[in-house]
Design a protein around this nucleic acid. Structure first.
Lengths: 197, 197
DNA sequence: TGCAAAGCGGACCCCTGGTCCGTATCGTCT
DNA sequence: AGACGATACGGACCAGGGGTCCGCTTTGCA
């Protein structure tokens, strides 16, 4: 089956592009300010190399995002409680939301860039659907959700919506919220939804 | 003080543009597909007229949106219960969220176009801040919010986030949700947040 | 060492938002 | 009514960003 290993200059260039893009997105403010030509120049590479490696602008951003996402994915799939699978739903739901919020907070530039592409809905991204499915399944295991009138699928969407990158960005920039503040607020809201406290 | 009345060909053209844009956005799918030149052509007007009347693309979309928004704004500011000011907070909160959801549902094309401009965060739009303030104030009047650990401001954001246009669009297109289904789900979620039922 | 094949780069295309300026229209003042 | 300044019109024009093409270079295998 295919999967021929790529030439090493290709992997070197790919890495250079990733690094350069990461750097540029990190320091620049609005993600739309940085262009593909910028990234190519910063990586010391031709534009075509960018597009050959990542398809299009969205592909590049997605690649960056996915790379950052990996530790979180692992922690959720096979980590320790309260994030990992061994935790009880009632403690895992807040932990998951908190972890997602932290991730969005720490990677706002990328998250913003990704949600802001406009070309594709954030709701079709594979990482979103994974979070959503996990969250919905957890909610269904909590007494009062499955049997209550509430739809777990919608509740999962609604809870995740509270971690939207542009909301986080707004809280930080225009309401001067600190990281811990945001976490506390989300935790309180989550607790309320879960009927805890 | 200024405010000279505009020439009547100007108002005629403005109306024509508004109508044409409304129509185009309504029938076309992804809002990014329709260009300023399209709108100008459909309205039988030069491109410059568009930009002179609305400033830029975002301005045009905002004008359309605001126009549609007016009935809702009135209903909230001076309508009858449960939406109007005479209602108790506990019935007005769900009513407000339901009304916003319905509005977003019925005007998804515009809402999507507006949130998707990318140039400006949805959280800075004046109508958003109005909804947010109203909602926050209502929540604060509900026992268990002001005195609870939850932050009403964040809770208002979170609740409104459940009505985001792209979420609504996702529910409709990829989860085949009907209007009434979506309303019921949001109502159930809201009730849970409010601690009702 | 030879030689496909894979990869490279930057000139190039295209499309879209936004502007300019000569011309037409409006409205007002006499 | 006629004339004249102000206002608006419109389509040619510009800028710049995403994405592609193709002649040249590098790689890796025999």
């Amino acid at each position: 089956m295919p999967e021929r290993k790529p030439r090493k200059d290709a992997v070197r260039n790919r890495a250079a592009v990733l690094a350069a893009a990461d750097d540029l997105f990190a320091r620049c403010e609005s993600p739309e300010a940085i262009t593909m030509a910028d990234v190519a120049a910063a990586a010391g590479v031709g534009k075509a190399t960018l597009f050959r490696a990542f398809g299009d602008r969205t592909g590049l951003i997605r690649a960056l995002y996915e790379a950052r996402l990996e530790p979180l994915r692992n922690a959720i799939a096979a980590g320790e409680p309260p994030l990992g699978p061994a935790a009880t739903p009632l403690e895992r739901v807040p932990a998951l939301l908190d972890a997602v919020l932290c991730f969005k907070f720490d990677n706002r530039h990328l998250a913003l860039a990704l949600e802001g592409t406009g070309s594709d809905s954030p709701y079709q991204a594979t990482h979103y659907t994974r979070w959503h499915r996990t969250l919905r399944d957890l909610l269904e295991q909590i007494p009062g959700f499955a049997d209550g009138a509430a739809d777990s699928g919608f509740a999962a969407h609604a809870l995740l919506a509270a971690t939207r990158a542009d909301l986080v960005e707004h809280l930080v920039r225009h309401e001067q919220a600190e990281r811990e503040e945001a976490r506390a607020q989300l935790a309180a809201f989550t607790a309320r939804v879960l009927g805890v406290g």
